[in-house]
Design a protein around this nucleic acid. Structure first.
Lengths: 242, 242
DNA sequence: CGGATGCTTCGATGATGATCGAAGTATGAA
DNA sequence: TTCATACTTCGATCATCATCGAAGCATCCG
């Protein structure tokens, strides 16, 4: 048949456990060195170097030289979305490597997804923004509303800069733990940066998990309230799930 | 790290070109025999058999015995969505195997995505239904509106049966050729079935392409008009893309 | 009952590729 | 300059796995 794009190439890149581990680590958003990535994958530096050059040739990662270090990151948002999507599929099938370790609940509550917030809290951000009509749209075509524009700038986010960045401002990303969409795009990134800058949340050292502080929890709850029955009603004219 | 689900397992399943070809063929939605799949992948029956048992063990495909034939299909909608998602990623990166062959325009216009319509026409269905407020919602959380309910049943679709099926009625699926969402779920499936049953469209014999007849084109244009500026306006309060 | 078709299993082969030791290159520190 | 760190490249080894021939099993037909 030979129809359509070549998914085997990408599959084979992800198909190796060592490379999959590295990509998963990079989904944490932090730039990592080859040595660090070798450590997380449990392989020697030579082997890691070989894998990294393959991933780079495949366009999945990018590197930045800085002194004698080479920092690796995912190539762009799309790679992060794709990986998170695969994780969602794998999680639903029960393809888990770890027998739901102790860090699992923290990951499900709030974690970094490349450059934005994911997990229960990430989903809640999008839900809340939609219920308050800050964001509207269907499918992957999310858009900021006129009224929402004010709310965002009130948070201290430079909206003009986001629009200028030539990346989509609002975007959905499928959450592997919640099986629902959360907010991605430059606005999603800006919000996570905001949480960290304000000291409301902190990243766990060697994990994707994000821990909210006491005041952070309160501020978050104030900014992103759970959708009330009345706002939910607007979207629930008809029950779709059985 | 060993955090999160195991994407390497799925990657390795898709990573083999022969298996990727088979999966792509099955994304056409038709149940295919082992011999047919071996043909499309360009391998012998023995090798195909080995691949198919691996794919089945991985939960990506399912088989149905019928006489001395064994018909293979994708395991469920999720697998189709995942494959289509990977294709979108691959296409965007320029990972194409065929140098944009002659069938390519037809595929981009209208094709089968497992069990629903994809391509330009597929995207247009969702756009139109949203603009006419038959469907509302954000992200993956699409829902049929009260008014939309009437429109759907007027088409001769048994809505009660769809709701009872325990599968989501409305769902988004990322289109690899359009880089936009089209309609999936049991409603998406019902619509494609409708088009084929009414004789408005026909499937190309050995391809995912769908060809609309003359009257089919007219009926389709009548049912799913391109969103007018006024309806578009409602969602475009703020331009998001640069 | 043959005989034919559809598919699986077994076994051997061969190629790909992951792995790591050793050596080489580049950058920074002393 | 000398040493150390960070990483790449080379080369050899080893394991995995895709592949196919041959044989076996199941189903259908006449």
């Amino acid at each position: 048949m030979k129809e359509g794009p070549d998914i085997a190439l990408i599959g084979s890149l992800i198909g190796d456990p060592a490379r999959a581990n590295m990509l998963t680590a990079l989904t944490g958003g932090k730039a990592l060195t080859a040595t660090e990535l070798a450590g997380t994958a449990g392989i020697t530096l030579q082997t890691a170097s070989s894998h990294l050059s393959k991933l780079e040739a495949g366009g999945l990662i990018a590197q930045r030289k800085q002194g004698r270090h080479r920092y690796f990151t995912l190539a762009d948002d799309d790679v992060g979305l794709m990986i998170e999507g695969l994780m969602g599929f794998a999680a639903y099938r029960g393809f888990t490597r770890h027998r739901t370790g102790p860090k699992d609940p923290a990951l499900r509550k709030a974690r970094v997804c490349y450059n934005h917030l994911a997990g229960d809290y990430g989903v809640r951000v999008l839900d809340s923004l939609v219920a308050e009509e800050v964001i509207a749209g269907v499918g992957d075509k999310l858009q900021l509303t006129k009224s929402g524009e004010g709310k965002i700038t009130a948070l201290g986010i430079d909206l003009a800069a986001l629009v200028k960045s030539r990346r989509p401002v609002c975007r959905t990303c499928l959450d592997w733990s919640e099986r629902r969409s959360h907010l991605s795009g430059s606005l999603g990134q800006a919000l996570l940066t905001l949480f960290l800058d304000k000291g409301w949340a902190k990243r766990e050292p060697d994990s994707r998990a994000v821990r909210f502080t006491g005041t952070g929890e309160k501020e978050f709850a104030k900014l992103f309230p759970l959708p009330t029955p009345s706002t939910v009603e607007r979207f629930n004219q008809h029950t779709v799930e059985a």
